[in-house]
Design a binder for these strands. Structure first.
Lengths: 229, 229
DNA sequence: ATATAGCGTGTATTTTTTACACTAAGTAAT
DNA sequence: ATTACTTAGTGTAAAAAATACACGCTATAT
């Protein structure tokens, strides 16, 4: 059976742009490579897809190995296949972006076997990246810029309970522009997918804001009625 | 060098959803397979990516082999990588959609070495497809539904000179809903990217409509000012 | 001359988006 | 307790965009 398919010296990998939102900044997770090629360079976390893994599984595994977390929100967005993108042979890379909650416990201490270190870096201040990872990152950022206008992905970057100001910050930093506070709140609340928790922020040194929660059930019921930001 | 990369029994292919618009209908190009697996089944045109081809090149080649045309508008939109999607081994498939002008000369007589036949089929009346091609098609259709609202892709489905009614038909058939004629025209013309050619339709048995052309230069100048339909 | 089929056009209403600034509430320091 | 400070929370008016809606015009065919 198998011999029917031509085999080249080729393989495929997954690369992940892992976004996190922390202290008003949009960050991504970079690793410092420990192996050739591009040893000691900064790179996006990624890996070869296993023989018996689907692409989504593989991306999930890579994120789990890196963060210890499961059930991370992620989405495939583009596949990079230039012939010479990898110096050691033909490697087609399927890119995923992931969105992570950093708020609160700051739980994400990246670990990885194949990397020396892993750090969160502000997307506005990235080092030079290995391979074509700069391009992969840029396309990923573009993608979430577009998607945040229609899909409720902003919540994936926030703790379960969040304030409207925090939510607005996420939109502002991803869309890279200031939004009007009153208009933002009016519109956001008008979608009817935010649940007022009758609860206030804790531990802030000023007036505490109301906490909200994204109401997935309500959103699901709106069935495709796209949020249009 | 190369031995550093693990090699599996794996390869990648391109599959194309080739859209065409003809006589008010949205169609795609299907081939009848001439080889195992799925011999005699209908399938999306596709092929293995060559060793020294980028993905875009490969998609271009496949389309060229099939239609004889070059410079077809196409766009990669998703990669399908379930472990068992191909019965003969691990084949990850990168999907492209293509948009073709069928109007006028009806020039596209599909040919292919690896297919018995190729036919245009209305998207509303597709046969059972090989592999996971149904899924690939559906995602492709979704994609252009979404994209036609923001990008000037409708023109790729029309001859260079077209009437506003034809343009409206493209939107209607892709969005799968009726649009108001006056509102459509008002909005479409307001973008300022249609050039009135001072020319009328020929050979129609009723009042001839004005022909328009998509003005790429003007569109490019609007730089990202997205059309929002 | 007449029938026919699609072309081309404007206005009023509703909805959505935008612009804009002050008071309230809680904390921290004195 | 008073004060200073910082962020929360709120409404309205104007502008822009989206929608709903119907008929005379024009070229062709007979």
């Amino acid at each position: 059976m198998k011999e029917v398919l031509p085999k080249f010296d080729s393989t495929f990998s997954i690369d992940c742009v892992v976004f996190g939102f922390d202290e008003g900044e949009l960050k991504i997770l970079l690793i410092e490579r420990n192996e050739e090629p591009y040893k000691d360079w900064w790179a996006l976390p990624g890996n070869i897809v296993g023989e018996n893994e689907s692409l989504d599984q593989s991306a999930g595994r890579i994120l789990n190995e890196l963060t210890g977390l499961t059930n991370i929100y992620m989405e495939q967005y583009y596949t990079f296949g230039d012939v010479n993108r990898h110096p050691q042979g033909r490697v087609v890379s399927i890119a995923y972006y992931a969105l992570l909650r950093l708020g609160g416990e700051k739980s994400v201490k990246p670990i990885s076997t194949y990397a020396k270190t892993a750090y969160w870096r502000n997307v506005k201040d990235l080092p030079k990246l290995a391979f074509d990872h700069q391009k992969i990152f840029e396309k990923g950022l573009e993608k979430i810029k577009r998607r945040i206008k229609h899909q409720p992905i902003a919540f994936e970057l926030l703790p379960e309970k969040f304030t409207l100001t925090q939510l607005q910050n996420v939109y502002e930093v991803i869309l890279n522009k200031q939004l009007d506070k009153r208009n933002f709140r009016k519109k956001m609340l008008s979608f009817g997918v935010l649940k007022d928790l009758d609860e206030k922020q804790q531990g802030v040194s000023f007036r505490a804001a109301t906490l909200y929660k994204f109401d997935k059930r309500r959103y699901a019921k709106l069935f495709g009625k796209e949020i249009s930001f």
